[in-house]
Simulated assay, not measured.
Amino acid sequence: MRFAALVILSMALASCAALPGDGPGAINISSQDIEADSSQNGYSIIRIDRENIDVIKRYRPLAFANEFRGVGSGGSSTLLGVGDTLTVGIWEAAPDGLFSSSDSGSSQIPAVIDETGYIFIPYAGRIRAAGLSVEGLRQSIQNKLIGKAVEPQVLVSLQQKLSKTAVVVGDVAKPGVYPLPLRQTRLLDLVATAGGSREATYETVVTLKRGRRSGTTRMEHLIDYPENNVLVSPNDNILLSHRPRTFSAFGAVKSNQLVPFKTKSVTLAEALATVGGLNDFKADSGGIFLFRYEDSDLVRDIRPELAKHVANEKLVPVVYQLSLRDPNGFFLSRFFEMRDKDILYVSNHPTAEFGKFLQIIAPLISNVSTVQGITE
């Protein structure tokens, strides 16, 4: 019977790796074999230390800005176009002129550039306006009136530049089509003109569609990183979407759950506290991992030796590892900020796996002992 017990014990030990669990152990994620060949395993391991924290804090996410760098004019052209509304003022030297009235010696004529690019002025006829500057149109009208009006003087005022517009829709206070002024207009300028976002800025994303190009960023990144506040171009489409940030917590924490961000920033220390901290009976304090897709530029800054593996990628799967066995880990966790859709995982301690093993074989040992007692 003792031999039978030993056989059962040996079989159970052999199958220990197949025990049920919350996820992989720390050794399975960060073993030397995996770290040695990150390209084959599909992700990179980055241990959080003081140097890495400094690099991560200094990093500026500018993928959105790079998408639109050098593409677009940033405002309306100074030339007039179809749909622009104008006011044409005409003055004459004589009180009885064509455009004089009993109240004043001038007339104010509203005009809209039609689909053919022309406007109509009495006694001057149809005049080409599209493609001209305001000054060029003024001179053209004045020349047309020479010999018809008494020493005419003309002033052209641009009321609305409706030939060059951008669209703002989504979770914005006043969605609509907005004319672009002649001055350069930036993304935040246009969002502000549309009344701003209806939700908190840290829960709002901005998508800019320009021709075949498209980019999305958090609205707060337009403020925190001014390079992302790109110039707006005619025919741009801008979408504001309410997208609350969340992170997921798995493994040996006291509460496995999907956690919403309740403030603009959440650190790794706060994230662990939100889910109740580590499970005292299961957690490996040296095996705290955070899974995310990271910008390849940042990965190259932290791990230059991986440059050739991420050369053609915008986003790279990265596993950050933190150990709380060293008190410094607690300080580091205060400066590591969580991001939307991060996955926080705490691995089981090897002794926790052994505890599961004991629970499985305990009935077998008990049965063997009972049989042995009966036979004796």
Rank of each mutant, 00 (worst) to 15 (best):
L6M: 15
I8R: 06
I8V: 14
S10Q: 09
A18F: 10
G23S: 07
N28G: 12
S30H: 03
Q32S: 15
S38R: 14
N41P: 01
I48K: 08
D49Y: 02
D49T: 05
R58D: 14
Y59H: 14
P61W: 09
F64L: 08
F64E: 09
A65Q: 02
G70H: 08
L79E: 14
G83C: 03
I90F: 04
S101N: 15
S102A: 14
S106E: 09
E115K: 13
E115F: 09
I119E: 10
A124L: 03
R128T: 13
A129F: 00
L137F: 00
K144Y: 00
K144S: 06
Q160K: 04
S163V: 01
K164M: 10
V169H: 06
V169T: 14
V177F: 02
L180R: 00
L182M: 05
L188F: 11
G195R: 00
T201M: 11
Y202C: 08
V206S: 07
R212W: 05
R213Q: 05
G215C: 05
L222A: 10
L222F: 13
L222C: 07
P226G: 05
P226L: 14
N228G: 01
N229A: 03
V230G: 06
L231E: 08
S233M: 08
I238W: 07
R243Q: 15
F247G: 11
F250M: 13
V266S: 04
D284H: 15
D284W: 12
G286Q: 11
R292V: 07
Y293I: 04
D301T: 13
R303Y: 11
V310W: 11
V310S: 09
V310L: 13
A311T: 03
V319R: 06
R325G: 12
P327S: 12
N328A: 08
Y345H: 05
Q372A: 06
